[in-house]
Amino acid sequence: MYRIWYYFREAFASIWRNLSLTLAAIFTVAISLALVGSSLLVREGAERATAQFQEGVEFIVFMNADATGEQDGAIRDVLENSPAIEDYAYVNQEQAYEEFSTLFSDKPDLVNSVSPAVMPPSYRIVPTDPSAANVTELARQFANQPGVKEVATATEAIRQIDDFSTRVSQALLIAAVVLVVVSALLILNTVFTAIGARRQEIEVMKLVGATNWFIRIPFMLEGTIHGLIGAALAIPALFVVDNKVLAFFQESDAVPLFRGFAVPDGFVWDTSIWLLLIGGAVGMIGSAIAVTRYLDV
């Protein structure tokens, strides 16, 4: 018990002594982990946005909210009778709204921003022949029908979203990996400096028989604390990304599927836990390298 107090006291004394280096290390960890987290959020958003394409659904015909019964009936007629259509499901405005609110049940703001009246009704369609060429041809035919707002094909929509999210999340991830390495090096350097500042104490400790771990632990704790504080700072950034950046896509009308581009708070919290683990690990690894290379105990 007393020993744990000793480790923390030494670690924080050292952090205080090296404040400028420590802050540099912590902010680098924070930035790199915010990027890691954003990359994960974009990826998850993309997966959720494409979730409507399941169980063989290859394309979705979105109707105008004010499509007439006649226009609707014409579409339904084709779907019922064409041998090219294996199966279909109609999602009315209520259901679309229902689905949207369950998907984002923990985001009441987002749910409140829409109403059944603005959700386009849609047909989710399973074609007999799911080949890309056939789906594209069918989609073109439906797109020309009166009352149809837009047709999203799985291949096209998913490709669009995948393209977008892969590009964004990969760019983020590459930057993040570079910065994670940089932050590990900064932590290593900070701990190295801390070791240098305590060279005499370390010499005396060895002389009187302090164990290797007793000497090492405060330094490793110091590095781990850098990593954890950096991760803790990255978590609010993650919520900002979730609420502002992803929300921007949800509100844009460019691609209807981007409406689904949101992740539940639960996922953001899970990601936060990952960031803490990564931050702690980066700090511990950085300081462990410093300790084994420079402490020589």
Binding site: Y2, R3, Y6, Q200, E201, E203, V204, M205, L207, V208, G209, A210, T211, F214, I215
Partner: peptide
């Protein structure tokens, strides 16, 4: 001597016991 300049006489002596885990 190898004394720690930033510690007092009694802290220098206590340090040797502290770092081998002697109780307070």
């Amino acid at each position: 001597y190898k004394l720690l300049e930033k510690k007092t006489v009694q802290e220098n002596v206590a340090f040797a016991l502290e770092v081998i885990g002697q109780p307070r």
